[in-house]
Nucleic acid binder design. Sequence first.
DNA 1: ATCCAGACTTGATGCAATGGAG
DNA 2: CTCCATTGCATCAAGTCTGGAT
Length: 899
Amino acid sequence: MAVEAPSKHVFDFDDDDDDGPVVFKRNNTSSSKQNQLNSEVKKASSQRYDGQSGRPASDARVLNGQSTGSQNKSIPPSKSPPVRSPILSPKSSNSSAKASPVRSPVVNSKASTSLNDQSKQAMRQNKFTAVKEEKSPMKTTETNSDDDDDDSQPLSARLKGISSQGNKGASTSTPAQSQRLVPKIEIKVSAEDPDDEAPLSARFKMKSNTGTSSNKPYESHEKKPLASKIQQNGSTMKVKQQKSSLLSDKRPLDKGNSSDQSCAKKPKISDTPTTLKSKQVTVKAEKAEEDDDHIPISQRIKKSVSSDSKTSSMKQKATKVVSSLKKINKNSKKEMKKSKYSKSTKLSPSSGDGQKKWSTLVHNGVIFPPPYKPHGIKMLYDGRPVDLTPEQEEVATMFAVMKDTDYMSKPQFKKNFWEDWSKVLGRGHIIKGLDKCDFTPIYEWHLEEKEKKKQMSSEEKKALKEEKLKQEEKYMWAIVDGVKEKVGNFRVEPPGLFRGRGEHPKMGKLKRRIRPCDITINIGKDAPIPECPIPGERWKEIKHDNTVTWLAFWNDPINPKEFKYVFLAASSSLKGQSDKEKYEKARLLKDYIKNIRAAYTKNFTAKDVTKRQIAVATYLIDKLALRAGNEKDDDEADTVGCCTLKVGNVECIPPNKLKFDFLGKDSIQYVNTVEVELPVYKAIGQFQTGKSKTDDLFDELDTSKLNAHLKELMPGLTAKVFRTYNASITLDDMLNKETRDGDVAEKVVIYQRANKEVAIICNHQRTISKSHSAQMSRLTEKITELKGVLKELKIDLDRAKKGKPPLKDADGKQKRNLSPEAIEKKIAQTNVKIEKMERDMQTKEDLKTVALGTSKINYLDPRITVAWCKRHEVPIEKIFNNDYQTVECWTRDTLKNGS
DNA sequence: ATCCAGACTTGATGCAATGGAG
DNA sequence: CTCCATTGCATCAAGTCTGGAT
């Protein structure tokens, strides 16, 4: 549809994916990704899950399905579908969401909800999903019925089923379901594809369209993130229902396959392609929409997945293969790559299996900030103006400009600044310390400059902008494998004072100016070396490393051990591919989650301490969406993640609640009280005994051990995948549960609510805007005013009914005579207005500390969003801005394929 | 088995652009 | 059309995770 049309990306590719286009596209990504996944899968598969039908089966299916299509062999879609149904049916939870709010970073009372509740909810959800699935027969029909069901169902539904189990470690089968839907698609693909001959990788891509199978991933084994579950547990369930949805499913990752193709194509096409793409897109979209509309997102996803099928197929293959041999996978990958190449030289992507990221790379290097322009404003020392050299003045100005920030109240900041500035001043300088310094003159100059800038006419601003654009244009683009791609951060970071977050030991240090001799350029061997923009200087080094994606880097002046990279923009296919891989992995987790949960639940009481710690840590990461928690150096802010939690960060509240309170990434506080399973509660108590508050809670654990363990459970699984998984499933689940008829605006609100749940789960916070309270009181005022009007209207109505004229208004003027009907109408309108304002106020208050953007960009599988938009006829641009839409090329492809 | 360099993703923030209400 | 809040976007800090060296 219409919606789609707009998006240019549409990737015409989809279509092309199949063949010609392929060349252009960067198949690489997909292939490489696939490869990785495959290999991982293989490993994993070999390990344990066989027994459990659930996961392995699903994986297999996925692979098969996709591959089938793609590859050859037609594997019938049927994999082992049946399983899932059982799962679903069991209990769906009724109350779905309990109190989603709980989880909010802040202390949520909700937290207390017990897992059990969550699981119940999940179950309920499953039921729902099941229903949905049935409805959505279309997809199902296609291939394997069983699998299809799952697929068709929204992720959430699936998830729910899963989730319920998941918590307890219950059932297994869900995965299959998801696959089902896809099948049809796959079939088609397969038909198309003659690909069989093509290398596997190629096939996968192509097949991805088939994709049905891929969807499975999200199934519902576990629906929601722990957090959500937790909240849900509470009685609040009803309220939370929305939230609960989260629990339910996770989303389908499947899309990956198809997307790859499309993505690949896009890149190449870049120019002409666009148009084509758009056209194609529309077409695709239409198809997709039609199909999808009925189907829940999850299902769609599956479909899309199918489109992705290539990927999925790859995965499936991989899994299978994995079991047998990693090598095999690799080979297949290679083959795929080769095939791609053959088809389209450009594609190289696949090549890599992880290795090669590009074949040709052309760019113009980076642009440097302009040299410092001295302003000559003199600061005061001990009340007297001081002469400073431009270098000294530059640093003084950096400090002066920060006068109204709260860094100024931090001794560490001032101390570090003084240390660095005094070096610039040199020994024997008049200025002996910060105490007697008065930077006000410089600060005021700065304010004036700012004001001047603001006062410039729009023409002047425009001219300046164009001038800047002219200078920067050549740096904005790179040509990767023949495709023009946007560069992300081509501007070298200007000098300044380091603004570390939280109590960073290095805050206030001078971040010196970066020069060409600090910068290493990475570029294609045959590409011209970018000219150094500063006369008389030269780059530090020129590299031709196609196993990495950076275009340039320099060492961070604050911490020389670290690097600052110049990468392509998020809208580039290179980034898009890895994004897709990320979501595919999360989707894959859906198939494994049940078993993983069962495994860690079992290990809560393991004799071996390390095992027990791993189990509990995994539980926390799953349930609360905690970050892994790498070790940190002393010269960094003191923050923690799961593995680095301190004894003092967790408080046991009998009978079975845990209160978490710690500073996480960016020194954002995480406060949450959660009801946990008793064995977890007891285990935490054990880990705490005999330790001081500052000791590590998980003394036997670090992220590498944890991730090594996770990798045994599922190929490529790491701690952060749980965040992606739980976020996407929650979104899917909530969208499926909450969306109901209404206008677009109402649906957008539903989406935002789901988005908010995810943000809360992930603890994405923002600082309250300075004007928040003012805005609120203004709204309150308006509401009061409206209520006054309402009162008057009611009086007038009474009078009008008695044939009396209305009262005079506030100014003493006589109001117009209105019929009672007219007054009633006015009253109704006013009431609506008041209600709307009250709602707006409420949401504003609710969201004042919640940041939605991060989860939207990094955690929510765009395929879920796109599918939902299509199904509910919500223009995608209501949700995603242009850049995202670009990024989503793969998404669309996937979806299209699926449809 | 550990360590650590390296590469890449995730995240909060601030300012500019946008757009809706008055 | 102005005002101001919201959105978009860039920025750059702060995480995660991998793989190779020791």
